[in-house]
Design a protein around this nucleic acid. Sequence first.
DNA 1: GGCCGTTTATAGCATTTGGGCATAACAAAG
DNA 2: CTTTGTTATGCCCAAATGCTATAAACGGCC
Lengths: 329, 329
Amino acid sequence: MNLRHARTFVTVAELGTVSKAAHRLRTAQPALSRQIIDFEQELGLRLFDRVGRRLLLTGEGEQLLAGCRVLLNCASAVTEQAQQLRQGDTGVLKVAGSPQHIESVLSQFLHRYAERYPNVEVRIAEGTGSEILKLLESGEIHLGQNLLHSVKLDKRHFGSLPLGSVEVLAACRPSLTLSDRDTIEVARLSGVPLLLMDSGFGFRRAFDAASRMAGLIPTIKFESRNPHTLLALAEAGHGVAIVPSQLQCRRYSLRIVGLTYRGRPLREPLTVSWDKRRSLPRFATDYCAMLAGYMCEIFPITRPTAPKPTISRRAPKQARRKPPAVSAR
Amino acid sequence: MNLRHARTFVTVAELGTVSKAAHRLRTAQPALSRQIIDFEQELGLRLFDRVGRRLLLTGEGEQLLAGCRVLLNCASAVTEQAQQLRQGDTGVLKVAGSPQHIESVLSQFLHRYAERYPNVEVRIAEGTGSEILKLLESGEIHLGQNLLHSVKLDKRHFGSLPLGSVEVLAACRPSLTLSDRDTIEVARLSGVPLLLMDSGFGFRRAFDAASRMAGLIPTIKFESRNPHTLLALAEAGHGVAIVPSQLQCRRYSLRIVGLTYRGRPLREPLTVSWDKRRSLPRFATDYCAMLAGYMCEIFPITRPTAPKPTISRRAPKQARRKPPAVSAR
DNA sequence: GGCCGTTTATAGCATTTGGGCATAACAAAG
DNA sequence: CTTTGTTATGCCCAAATGCTATAAACGGCC
């Protein structure tokens, strides 16, 4: 089976004679004549009845003609698609990120990106930092987002772009007074029942590292892959949730303080990473740049609440967060 | 664009490496390697990122992969269809016949034929005898039915099979007494206003020939391509309709007599004809044979009514026509 | 770091495919 | 019968394709 066979078959059937088909296809007549014969032999049936100097479609040929037409249409569709892709700004972009990243960043950002690149299909995978690293290494995704530096990746093979930093926050029910300021030392969490992200997450690893440094042996009440589970549990008074400032907390009634180690806030850089050995099209590199800009606009998403919480807490922050969201529309 | 390119592209993309693809496609690895490169050059874009010893689909490749898959499915559908056709009993059969033939014969016969050849698509064209001849000569149809011998066709090129004969009938309103018997001589139609088939019909030509022989100069009241128009006009008393016995007349209140010339009934043989230079598949030759058998069963469809018509005319004939119709179901 | 197994890409050679030219075979029209 | 137009065939050459051998790159392992 050959596209050329199909093409000459269809043209000959349409024009009625081999000669005319040869003229249209800018080739000599014997070539087409032989192609028809070869095609018939390959299919094992007569496509034309040779009556006089005309070629008349047989009943079988009539049926195959339709099939060959759609085949040719398919082929030209593919080449046309290739041409589209060559123009650029078209393709599939597979990205992965943590649940909180997808929720608080991507959910808005994708709209902005789709404005600039309407013909790029962004496919999203959700996972922990280590899972994202695996996907990146296996080549199943093009970009891995929200990777923290604590997740090691080979500098030789992977490029990355900083996306700003997340701070480590502790969230608990307002009635619980963790600290009289809007920060708290890691070490003071000793004995406090903690609600932590699953250990696969880079954020969790960063917290664990800080704990070791501070000599804290954490009391782990619960671990989850879903940060909102931690917030809900914290709101219900089951302990203190350790969450990244990237997480949306405004739906919950929580007191939020920043974690510090030796007086300095705990923060972890975020990055977007890719395999340097792969060639990223413009719409992919642009994705990274646009993402960095967008996150710079909206970060930090959640900040510590005032030390003495009032009812209308975080009112100024809501005002600060609105404009970028609108501009992203 | 080449089906081979598409095939190796899809296989390599599915199996992840060129080597495995080569093994599956039972060929050497360098061949596929070059095919991929050639395909990429032809399309003008990278399909794979060569990272390490793996080939990872680019975003563009991902999109083209889907297109190539449907292309290959199309191709295999065509070859599969060809195999079906090779088995036989599948195809398109284009036939043509007169309106009365289609109405009274084909309408029932096609059911019987479809029982035997359910996968043959019969396409019907309607026309006069001379139009059918043209279609046959131009190759637009495979079989021309209901051709009368008065329509000349070249014995060298066209084969034919007799289908029985039609008689020439005269139909008028019952109150009009054309004849006291169930036949009437052609010559006696002199001066009678006649309702005739269009002169393109072989049946009309047969009548004209008989008229000339009998020295009759017909008084033509009306000509039509639609025989039922003639019957309706005759029933309304506008004249005598000259119609073939093949025509269904039972819906009309008409007196019907057979035309004779020198005491012998006028009759014209019917045939089904084809271009001998074309190869007819079995389902086509069988169509002819089955048609001949069927028409033998049901002919003549309309016979002269009793000379003194009663109310329950043609009751026995209705009974005679039912059984074949049932057996054809 | 060095070796080994694996994989891709390249080179050289052989085979096949396919087109072009000339021409035969054939049909239709004058 | 000749002329014209069309299909099919033989011959030649070029392009495509495949195979073997081999180089180059990579990853894993010691």
